[in-house]
Design a protein around this nucleic acid. Structure first.
Lengths: 193, 193
DNA sequence: CGTCTATTTGAATGTACTCAAAAGCGGTGG
DNA sequence: CCACCGCTTTTGAGTACATTCAAATAGACG
């Protein structure tokens, strides 16, 4: 289990000594998923948060008409779960599915709570992590209420250039809140003139 | 300066002893604003986060066409700032304006950083605060990409029943990402049948 | 290679916007 | 305390953006 990337990720915000590092690593569990396998399904309670070592995921909800809506994507070095379910210990309304063959490090909620007590620096780490996630969502909300579909798509390509290769168009349309047909029309419009 | 409400708010997540309470209170500054006064303007760096004792605020952005878009509202017992600017110390793209005559307790970023070191329990407090805010935004994003304007409006009324009385329709429309004219049409449609 | 799913294309439709004008409402000054 | 002014809300006609439904084409996986 290669823990370099997760330790490097954590060291961006807090400094751990060897003992703290070892303790942290000891509570992680390696997990492999093939594409289309689920980390979490609707109705389940998320007891893990997951650090992505390799691959990609999508968090989505199926609405009353059976249509999928992608809340967000996640790739290497991101943490993924259904945060609502994880934090409130309530049944998830969303699915978390591997888009590519993936590897994650699982951290259970119980172990995370112990970690907060044993190494309070992790309170800081996750505070900063949540703050950064919050900023991203905040900008996304403003864009959703103020920009046209085409502007949102262009911004998406600029912000996440690699995502266009890694996620199918249908899923990108869902993330943007538009239909795949309309994304296709926009793309041909943007390609021509 | 009445500090009951803020101490009660904090005690929901962490327990402070008398000394810690006193220290915390000592770094807050009371501030009164009349309606339409600004806590923060576009281009300024948010050096404060503010706990609302009384009144209400809106955080909004003005787009390239001069149209206002309300990112969020805040009322008593909420914290308000421009979180992007505050956390990254970058110039704000948003305004934070009092909607009613209001009173807040200001906490500077410098004092907050000192507070994190002096009383690490506040790392936990703000982690939980950010997590809760994150959950709210997460649900809002899913609603924005999956629901019609009418469904979003109905959910808004259900989730924040008092907001209809406290914020003008024009601002609610802006928060929902629709025009005030269209909100008016929806309201008359909902009232009749 | 065949099958299944994703993407493209097009026509008809619906949701929400723009622009304009009237009506309603609240605050302010006489 | 009333009248006026400015801003908000309503109403309506015309329009644009995005969806729905359907069918053809392209691509990916077993």
């Amino acid at each position: 289990m290669n823990t370099n990337s997760i330790l490097k990720n954590i060291s961006k915000h807090i400094t751990l000594d060897k003992k703290e590092e070892d303790y942290f690593i000891s509570i992680l569990r390696f997990k492999k998923l093939n594409r289309k396998e689920f980390l979490l399904s609707e109705g389940e309670i998320a007891i893990h948060t997951n650090y992505i070592l390799k691959g990609s995921f999508r968090n989505y909800r199926i609405d009353k008409d059976g249509v999928e809506h992608i809340a967000y994507f996640a790739i290497e070095d991101w943490w993924i779960s259904d945060i609502h379910s994880f934090l409130t210990a309530s049944p998830s309304r969303n699915f978390v599915e591997a888009v590519e063959d993936s590897e994650v490090l699982e951290l259970t909620k119980a172990n995370l709570e112990k970690l907060y007590l044993a190494v309070p620096k992790f309170e800081r780490f996750f505070r900063i992590l949540r703050e950064n996630a919050f900023i991203g969502q905040y900008e996304r909300i403003i864009q959703n209420i103020s920009l046209s579909a085409e502007e949102r798509y262009i911004n998406f390509l600029t912000k996440y250039p690699q995502f266009e290769q890694r996620f199918p168009q249908k899923q990108i349309a869902s993330y943007l809140g538009i239909t795949p047909e309309f994304l296709s029309v926009m793309r041909s419009r943007l390609a021509k003139p």
